[in-house]
């Protein structure tokens, strides 16, 4: 080995050059993997076709915000017609679709094509790999949800809305979105890592995210109507959207859907964090298992 490096100067025909320079830290590896994953979630650095869906959905979710800003500017209103958190909640279909469609990009491909083996034979551990993939997806979803309310916020301020009124509401909505994006990334990520086939993963995610929220809302409606205590609150724990909306309401960020009091907000937050933690552990275990095959 050491002789080889001496020799390379003499023997040009052998041509192999070693590399004795700096190797990057674990943090740098994680950053590279994270950014590559984030770009891939929007189809960047992939085929032209894979950019269509994410950007189409993003366009649809920003368009209403642009219209709202236009109306607020035109009629010179002194507040937005709906809160930031309510806007996020209104767009749950589009955001759910984005998460369902893009999770397989980050969680099925490596497992299905078994390139996971090549990653796990490199310095990053399976746990760190899974966590980084998850972070790429969570941030991609957050960016998807954040862009329209950023348009609302900035547009609203330009239209003359009061900064001191808008800013706290906006920031609360962002915090709620972080929790929401974490939940969506966990659920769609776990499903994509198990289903492997993109079609199955997308359908399973849509069932869990969109159908479940419908069921929860029906249960909550019935419980409310019948005046049964706690059933509505418990039901709300079964969908990331009702968790988001319930917390938004109790935090006065205004979503007009669901309402939580007493210890329920804490229960919601703990449930959400517990779900994310359990999902991450599952993802790491799944990657480790497939990597050993």
């Amino acid at each position: 080995m050491s002789q080889m490096s001496d020799r390379t100067g003499v023997i040009h025909d052998l041509g192999y050059r070693g590399y004795a320079g700096q190797r990057e830290s674990t943090a740098a590896l994680v950053r590279h993997l994270f950014l590559t994953g984030l770009r891939h979630a929007y189809g960047l650095g992939r085929s032209g076709r894979s950019k269509v869906l994410p950007f189409l959905l993003l366009g649809f979710s920003v368009l209403p915000a642009v219209i709202v800003v236009g109306v607020v500017t035109f009629i010179d209103a002194d507040s937005l017609p709906l809160s930031y958190a309510a806007y996020t909640s209104q767009l749950q279909m589009l955001t759910s679709l984005f998460a369902a469609a893009q999770a397989p990009v980050l969680f099925s491909r490596d497992l299905r094509h078994r390139s996971i083996v090549l990653y796990l034979a490199r310095p990053l551990s399976a746990a760190l790999f899974a966590l980084t993939r998850w972070a790429s997806l969570a941030v991609a979803i957050l960016a998807f949800a954040l862009l329209p309310i950023l348009v609302l916020y900035v547009g609203g301020l330009l239209a003359g809305l009061d900064v001191s009124e808008q800013t706290p509401d906006f920031l609360k909505a962002v915090v709620l979105q972080v929790l929401l994006a974490s939940l969506l990334a966990t659920i769609t990520g776990v499903l994509a890592s198990v289903a492997l086939r993109r079609g199955f993963a997308v359908v399973a995610s849509i069932v869990v995210l969109i159908v479940a929220v419908g069921v929860v809302l029906i249960v909550q409606g019935v419980a409310d109507f019948e005046g049964i205590a706690h059933v509505g609150e418990v039901a709300g724990l079964f969908s990331p959207w009702t968790i988001h909306n319930g917390l938004a309401e109790s935090w006065d960020a205004g979503s007009a859907i669901g309402d939580l009091d007493g210890a329920w907000p804490a229960v919601y937050v703990v449930t959400a964090l517990g779900l994310v933690a359990a999902g991450l552990a599952l993802l790491a275990a799944r990657f480790t298992k497939v990597g050993a095959r």
Binding site: Y19, R23, H32
Partner: peptide, 11 residues
């Protein structure tokens, strides 16, 4: 894959 093994981008 080179980057995932810690090589800087140009290398």
């Amino acid at each position: 894959m080179g980057r995932m093994s810690g090589l800087p981008a140009t290398v």
